[in-house]
Amino acid sequence: MPLKKVVTRTIYYGVIIFYVITIVYPIFLMTVTSLKPTREIFQNPYGFPETLYLNNYVELMVKANFGTYFINSILIVLISLLIIVMFSAPAAFVFARYSSRLNRFFYIYFLAGLVIPIRLGTISLLKMFVSMGLNDHIISLILINIAVGIPLGVFILTDFIKMIPRDLFDAARMDGCSEPGVFMRIVFPLLRPAIAALAIVIFIPIWNDFWFPLILIKSDSMKTIPLATALLFGQYNTNFGLVFAALSMASVPIVIFYLIFSKFFTKGLLQGAIKG
């Protein structure tokens, strides 16, 4: 029995350690590569750098204008998130409180947005933004992100509001609160954890979106981090140190964000999908 246990334990940890190495090593490799001069990358591709070489990052900020792209990406994420919450919370309130046939229909209509990929509407979106004069502007990306985010927002928040005890609403109503008042004073403050979960789940796809920036954004001042990274790869393709600094820079904020919030994160993602 003990021998069997030792064997199974060894296999167990062997598998887990191998798995962890395959996950961590490529990310480690990317970071480490960004800290080497290009020449060293070709001579010594897989180990630690001989000396810490930060020039790639300096060059990235100075030569490749990465600061602007950062600001753009952050603006897009923040504005999209705020509007998604502002628009989907009231809608979720209605869905949670009133179940008329029409409301159920709208609810399903929103839910369709959870499974249908927006990329199928690319050509029409492009045409629309061109005629509105909004293409090549981050506003177009924000609008798309909002449209994609609203279904998830409505879904997660509706679920959450349904869990709020009815007594709370009743008490507020007794005190002479109107329905919108109930929403503003009772529901909205309670929504904080749900909003946090929503924000965390939506943050990643918005930050990482590549397709729509590639189609819509052309001028340098409007580029987002993933688009700039991809184009940089073509532009400085012989300067490996620089491009891997760019890749690392594109990943760092999101990895830090994830590590800080990973607890909420798990909750949010599960709520978003499992109950569907």
């Binding site: 989907s88 009231p90 947005g113 199928l120 909002i146």
Partner: peptide
């Protein structure tokens, strides 16, 4: 309460897919 979400979602999600 419904209108803002409904509008944005319809204009920038549903209509483009049909229109494409």
């Amino acid at each position: 309460f419904l209108l803002p979400a409904l509008c944005i979602y319809t204009i920038f999600f549903f209509v483009p897919i049909i229109d494409s």
